[in-house]
Amino acid sequence: MSCWETLADYGLRSLGYGERLLPRDELTICQQVVLIGSGMLWNIYFGVLSVIVGFMLATAVALGKASQSALWRKLSEWFIFLFRGSPLFIQFFFAYFLFLSLKSSFPAASVFTSAWSGALVVLILNTAAYSGEIFYGALMSVPKGDIEAADAYGFKGWSKFRKITWPTMLRLAWPAYTNEAIFLFHATTLVFFSGFPARQQQGDALYYASYFADKTFNPFIPYPILAGYFILLTLIIITLFGIVNRRLNRHLPQNDRPRLKLKPRLLR
């Protein structure tokens, strides 16, 4: 069987298309590369969706923590404490338990016992807490002069936030936020590893890598393949976030534009 046929048979196996059964004997490197790559689709799905939704939620959390109202402030602080202070591994475990017990009282909650939705919720909340803390730090560092100037120009309320505070906050937070995004993608490997079960042998890259490690009894091939995919993914994320960074800083004179320096700040 040529490698192209393998790609046709297993390229979308993680989503349930193609061959029903996984390859079982005479496993080739090609099969491992294709199937682990197919599993990456799940990592990308979890990563992209939780970055997008988590971003919005994180802005709300940051504003909540900076808010005048003690209720919102406390709520945001506890949210951040709970999700930043505990390992994701344990969060997945509890989420699965929680969704199961919800299911018995509200049948509608049964969708959340599947990885595609339940794990997504956990990842969104998790990244919202981490990014919320980053955004809060940036919000506190927005130069006083910027706000005073906005007041002088008559900006108020929503438009002041939308046009002045928020862009500055993003610009300040962006390098740290890029790191958070990278680690979020790395964290997606934990989905099927702890807590959520894999259905019909449709799993993420790590699921297939450990499948091959188990079938070939040789961990030295599948895990490095997995590592290769993630290095590639990390490079893509850095490039995309670099483009956004350039756009955020496009008004600055050429020499003052901060290059995207990646200092690791937070991961889980």
């Binding site: 790395h186 790590l206 895990y223 590592a227 993630f230 290095i231 690791p264």
Partner: peptide, 19 residues
């Protein structure tokens, strides 16, 4: 720095000890 940071720690843990 680049390689180790680009890979999820769990992937390392699964084969590094034996290596």
């Amino acid at each position: 720095i680049a390689i180790v940071r680009g890979v999820p720690d769990i992937a390392f843990f699964l084969f590094f000890v034996i290596a």
